[in-house]
Design a protein around this nucleic acid. Structure first.
Lengths: 211, 211
DNA sequence: CTCCTAAATTGACCGTGGTCATTTAATCTT
DNA sequence: AAGATTAAATGACCACGGTCAATTTAGGAG
C-alpha cells in the first residue's frame, strides 16, 4: 500500500507542496509493534476474551488514546491477531496434499476449526470480520476467507468430487457447512457430537451426492 | 414453564412453608409489558441498532435496575422482539403451499431473509442467539431455528427434491446456505448480487444435484 | 388493622470501549 | 540553529451495558 504513488516533478515544488505525506516515523512503528506484542502476550496468558485495551496500553507504556490512533477499534487488533493465526493454519493446508476423501478433508482442516471454536468470542469476531462492509477495509480475517476458498477450489478441481457444478461453488458450499458445524458446536442441543461427526455427513452429501 | 409444580399436602403447612413461591405480582407483569411496549416503539422508530436501555427505562418510567430484573441483559430483550418477528414470518411459511421449485423456495423465504438482513446488528444478534449454550436458556430465536428446520423438513419430504439423503439433512443444509448468503449480503466484495441470485445456485446444487 | 416477609424497585456506581481538544516531539525549510 | 509544520501521543471525558446493597411495596398471617 505504501510508496506506490507516481513520480512527481520536484523541480519547483517541495515534496510536501506536491501533496506527498510526510513519512511515518520510526517511533510509530515501534509503538505499534509494542502494542501488538503486549496484546499477543496477554492473549497467550488469558485468551482473547479476557484481553483488555487498558492492559495493553499499560503494558506498552502508552496512553489509551494512542491505541486508537494505531487501531480503529478493538476489533481491528483482534482482526490482526486472529487473522495471523488463521493464516498459519492455511499455510499448512496449502502445503498438504489435496485430500481425496471426505474424512481426509475434514481431518486436514480440524486444527483450524478447533482454533476457531476455542472461544466463543473468537468465533463471533471471525463471523463479524469475515466479510468487509467496504472494499477499503478488507482486513486480515476477510483475506483468510478469500484464501480458504482459493485453496479449497484447488482441491475440488483435482479431486474425486462431483463435477456437475464449479469447484468454486463447491468451495463456498463447504465454507457454509463448516460455519454451520462450528455454530452448532456452541449449541447445547447439538453439542454432543464432535465437529467431525457433524461435518462428514454434510460434506458427503454436498461433495459426493448419490454415491 | 409456570405452575407446573406437583401438588403438595397443605393440611398442616401454609403454602409458603411448603416451599411454594409467592405468586408474581400484577405489578410485575405491567412493568414488563410496559418495558416491552416502549422498546417495541423505539425499534419501530429508530431500528434495533439505535435502541438504548436508558431510553427504554425512561419511557417506561422505571429505574435502570428494574430492566435487568426483568431481562438478563439487552440480548434477552432483543431475543424476544426479534424472535417474535421471525415467528410471524414462519407462520406465513407454514401456511403456504410447499414450494415445488428452487425459485419458489427462495421467493417464499425472501421476506424473512430481508428482515434478517435489515440491520447488521439484527443479523449478529440472530447468529449469537440461534444456538443456546445451555438447554435451560433456549430463547425465542433459538426456538425459531428449530421451527424453521421442522418446516423445511416437511417441504423436502413431499417435494420434488433429492431423496438420497434425509429431509432433515437437506433442511439443515439449506439453513447453512441461507446463513452464508445472508453473511455475503453484508460483504462489499460480493454485495453486487441479490440474495436470490446468490441463493438459487447454491440450493439447486444442494437440493437437485445432477439435474 | 398491623406486622411480617418476600418480591419489586431504586439509583449510585462500575467496567470497558471509544473520542477529541490539547500538548509534545519529530522532521522539513530557510 | 531557529522557526514552521505536521505527526504522534496524551488523558480527561463520554456512552452505554450491567451490578448490587439499600429501600419500597404488595399481600398473607395473626
Amino acid at each position: 500500500m505504501k510508496n506506490t504513488g507516481e513520480e512527481i516533478d520536484q523541480t519547483d515544488l517541495t515534496w510536501h507542496q506536491a501533496g506527498m505525506a510526510r513519512q511515518t516515523q520510526k517511533r510509530t512503528l515501534e509503538t505499534r509493534a509494542r502494542l501488538v506484542a503486549v496484546a499477543s502476550d496477554l492473549v497467550a496468558q488469558g485468551g482473547y476474551t479476557a484481553m483488555r485495551i487498558e492492559e495493553v496500553v499499560q503494558g506498552a507504556g502508552v496512553a489509551k488514546g494512542t491505541f486508537f490512533s494505531h487501531f480503529k477499534d478493538k476489533d481491528a487488533l483482534m482482526d490482526l491477531l486472529i487473522g495471523a493465526r488463521i493464516d498459519a493454519y492455511l499455510d499448512e493446508l496449502e502445503a498438504a496434499e489435496p485430500p481425496q476423501t471426505i474424512e481426509d478433508l475434514v481431518k486436514l482442516q480440524l486444527p483450524l476449526l478447533q482454533f476457531m471454536t476455542s472461544e466463543r468470542y473468537v468465533f463471533d469476531v471471525i463471523l463479524r470480520l469475515s466479510g468487509a462492509a467496504a472494499v477499503s477495509d478488507v482486513g486480515p480475517i476477510a483475506m483468510t476467507f478469500e484464501r480458504y476458498i482459493a485453496i479449497a477450489r484447488r482441491w475440488f478441481e483435482v479431486g474425486t468430487f462431483r463435477t456437475d457444478v464449479s469447484a468454486d461453488l463447491l468451495a463456498e458450499g463447504m465454507q457454509a457447512f463448516v460455519a454451520q458445524a462450528l455454530a452448532l458446536n456452541f449449541c447445547a442441543l447439538h453439542g454432543d457430537q464432535t465437529l467431525s461427526q457433524r461435518l462428514v455427513p454434510y460434506l458427503r452429501a454436498w461433495l459426493q451426492p448419490g454415491e
